[in-house]
């Protein structure tokens, strides 16, 4: 339960908004819930709604709208490619399709090693730098612009190596 495990964090978030405008705290609370649960399950969404007096459906609408919230489990990293019209005109759709093919997964799926999920998202507000994607991982997110299959695969490879290094670290530490 968020309310019990993160009492102080929740109070700190709520304190930033007027007491009659608690609903404004929905975004940071969702991030908190996502950190706790990994993905925003129905239970997590309901809990956030209860904290600030919003209907579950209202909270869910936000989760659905923003690409930074995840409603289903994915890999350690998420590569989110914008394929809206301007990006598609600059080859983003072909780029996304080819990337999936190279990784041998379908759009929305995760590589068998659990490292990378490829997702298609709506506008990332950087049409002039397409093909581009937003990389989300444990340390936040970052844009990778003017991408080619080569540059994207090199990045994925480096993430894999880093993942193995991380795992090796954990193994030696334990």
């Amino acid at each position: 339960m968020l309310a019990e495990n993160y009492t102080q964090e929740i109070e700190a978030i709520l304190a930033k908004y007027p007491s009659d405008q608690k609903r404004s705290a929905v975004m940071p609370l969702l991030f908190l819930a996502q950190r706790e649960y990994g993905t925003l399950t129905n239970e997590a969404i309901t809990e956030v709604g209860e904290l600030i007096g919003l209907q579950t459906t209202e909270v869910a609408s936000l989760v659905g709208f923003y690409s930074l919230y995840h409603d289903r489990p994915g890999g350690k990293y998420r590569i989110q490619v914008c394929t809206d019209l301007p990006c598609a005109l600059k080859g983003a759709q072909a780029f996304a399709d080819e990337l999936c093919e190279k990784l041998d997964i379908e759009m929305g799926e995760t590589t068998p090693d659990g490292q990378v999920t490829i997702e298609q998202v709506m506008c990332l507000a950087a049409c002039d730098r397409a093909p581009l994607f937003q990389l989300q991982g444990p340390n936040g997110f970052r844009y990778h612009e003017d991408q080619s299959i080569g540059s994207a695969m090199a990045l994925i490879e480096s993430l894999r190596v880093r993942g193995q290094v991380d795992r090796a670290h954990r193994l030696t530490a334990s």
Partner: peptide, 20 residues
């Protein structure tokens, strides 16, 4: 004042959902 249906996702993938 019963916001128990809402939009989910964006663009062409937008759907009406309910969680109540």
């Amino acid at each position: 004042g019963d916001p128990v249906i809402g939009f989910y996702e964006r663009g062409r993938r937008l759907e009406i959902v309910t969680y109540s």
